[in-house]
């Protein structure tokens, strides 16, 4: 999956004419997400607080040691799209960079809350929390 800058993401969303196109965009982003193998879809990797199943695993970046790379998957196609957005923002960054990211600010700019239901927003918050917890854990461990 390609990494996108906030500006690129915002532009893609701004280019959508209506809710329908935004949903299609979210689904297309999800299509590019690399699926997790079944061996990773286990309880320990499950993100609690999502109404659909979400599994997330952190890895150290192969390209740049010290940077993190998350992989995640869901049984919901819309959630896969949200995961793709989140991961494009946090992947290939150091724990410190992740901690400093204003992810909620980006989601606000994309006006995600207008296009996804509240329970989905809550699920997204749970994923963000998981990413931050892992980043913080890496910071305190290093």
């Amino acid at each position: 999956m390609k990494t996108m800058t906030v500006d690129e993401l915002t532009r893609e969303f701004d280019d959508c004419a209506d809710k329908e196109e935004r949903l299609t965009l979210i689904l297309e982003l999800g299509d590019e997400l690399e699926p997790l193998g079944d061996e990773h879809k286990v309880e320990v990797n499950r993100v609690r607080g999502c109404t659909s199943n979400v599994w997330m695993i952190p890895e150290v970046s192969a390209a740049a040691p010290g940077k993190l790379r998350f992989r995640a998957d869901s049984d919901s196609q819309i959630v896969r799209g949200l995961i793709a957005i989140l991961l494009s923002l946090v992947n290939e960054r150091t724990p410190e960079e992740i901690a400093a990211l204003d992810l909620e600010g980006v989601f606000n700019r994309l006006e995600l809350a207008r296009y996804i239901s509240r329970s989905r927003s809550n699920g997204l918050s749970s994923m963000v929390q998981r990413v931050r917890d892992i980043a913080q854990h890496c910071q305190s461990a290093s």
Binding site: K19, L23, S76, Q77, V79, I116, R120
Partner: peptide
């Protein structure tokens, strides 16, 4: 092949309240 939550989400965008779960 479609998650029930995803169907509910599309319905919700159309103002249609159902429950999935």
């Amino acid at each position: 092949g479609v998650h029930p939550n995803d169907i509910a989400e599309v319905l919700d965008q159309d103002g249609i309240a159902v429950r999935a779960g």
